[in-house]
Design a protein around this nucleic acid. Structure first.
Lengths: 253, 253
DNA sequence: CATTAAGTTCCGTCAAGCGGAACGTCAATT
DNA sequence: AATTGACGTTCCGCTTGACGGAACTTAATG
């Protein structure tokens, strides 16, 4: 027979749509006509996938990810918001600045401003990279709810891009904790040998949605420079976040 | 382990989001990193559920249903569009006029204008009824793609509300074909004995999204009156459809 | 403190998803 | 017209993970 499973999942999603403040498990279960335990299991799965969230005391609500299902049209919007800030960073540092998002367990580049210097790592928009080895990825993942992090750790392909790429789950977890503590990610030789990246997270009103990163040959990132650039990147990301949060609802399509 | 299934399904949905014109199976499969046959199977399921559609020659696109997942906020919009028309019908006929939509295999009433007469069938917004026995439901289902109709026939609970309720699949199919041919649904004694309903479908740019119905005690619907009211209901539904189609995109949130 | 209602977890059963391989179909190329 | 290749679609045996009743936990109420 056909996927009865999906019918139920979507029924639950539709049902949560009408209740931005959250619905109780019971209400949901009766509304969609499902046994409590089944509704609960599905809801839990949806939570680990990030489409719903448990807002305490057993009530559930949709997250922004559901909107994003329909509105990948958001991509150009994010680019348009981030671009001015990225340009400024690009000018100040003379290095490559990227905007990336997490989509099906991979990092996709939405926007890339290349360094004007000849030694550069050439990426282009629409390309994707694994999410644990990139500063961009780490800057996003570290700020996701832990259940979603665990899920990604278990499912995302962990690819050894260079001999130095960290691939042990325990190590990755340690790194993510540090990123969460620091507020930014730094990565050396993880995706390409000789390339260092600084990644900083971008938040909308619901949490991380993207990150920006600076990537440059390690030889150009000295001690003082590094600290300075981290500051610039953090400021940049915060300024993008602020714009996103001010425009809540204005540009959802 | 956790629902790998859902991850894939949502990956596909997210991937289709960026391509309103449609994506080829191959592109999708490689984009989300899934074997072709798997991607194809999931896509087919999503199609029968109505969330994607096959736009010929093996390319697929999202339908408006994905938006509706996130935007049950559309409900008030539809009510606001339909209300003036419904009021007019209510005044002209002096009977109860309903606006309903199909949601997880049931008909939900979004808006009800009751007759002023004392003999009435009392429904209220937010209530739900089975989809095959109501004129409202039939008026919607009859205009859905056949695969989705079949799916509903197989999954929706077919409830015998009165001794006269039609419950045989073959009979229901026959009725739906007639509704599709006529452009409206008429139902007598199917949900409540002594109650007759006339249902007419409302379309947005993508297809049926709702229906309006008139429900009245059979004793008040004579031969001439019936014909006249069907005309009025058809006109009303068309006028609502027209408004919806003019506002494409304007009010998606 | 008993009682009820709601959320959460468990677990044996078995339906249903999986995906490689085989098959159709169409169009460009020789 | 035959050949090739690329892509969409279907098949089917293997195995996974969904199912949901019942038991358990927690919170609110009298």
């Amino acid at each position: 027979m056909e996927s009865a499973h999906l019918v139920k999942v979507f029924a639950i999603l539709e049902a949560t749509a009408g209740h931005p403040e959250g619905v109780s498990l019971n209400e949901l279960a009766t509304l969609v006509g499902l046994p409590k335990s089944t509704a609960h299991r599905l809801l839990k799965t949806l939570c680990t996938l990030g489409y719903t969230a448990n807002c305490g005391s057993g009530t559930y609500r949709q997250t922004g990810m559901v909107k994003r299902l329909a509105l990948a049209a958001n991509d150009p919007y994010w680019v348009s918001v981030a671009d001015p800030v990225m340009r400024k960073l690009n000018k100040q540092t003379k290095e490559t600045i990227n905007l990336g998002i997490l989509r099906f367990e991979k990092i996709f580049y939405l926007h890339v401003l290349e360094t004007s210097q000849t030694l550069r790592r050439a990426v282009s928009a629409q390309m994707s990279d694994p999410c644990f080895s990139t500063a961009l990825g780490r800057a996003i993942v570290a700020f996701l709810p832990t259940e979603r992090q665990d899920f990604l750790l278990r499912h995302a392909t962990i690819e050894r891009r260079t001999p130095k790429t960290v691939v042990e789950e325990v190590e990755i977890k340690k790194i993510l904790r540090k990123v969460a503590k620091d507020g930014f990610a730094i990565e050396e030789d993880q995706t390409d040998l000789g390339v260092t990246c600084i990644g900083t997270p971008v938040f909308d009103s619901e949490g991380v949605v993207a990150a920006i990163s600076l990537s440059a040959p390690a030889v150009r990132i000295g001690g003082g420079t590094k600290k300075q650039w981290v500051e610039l990147m953090l400021e940049g990301a915060q300024s993008i976040s602020k714009t996103l949060q001010q425009n809540i609802g204005e540009r959802l399509l």
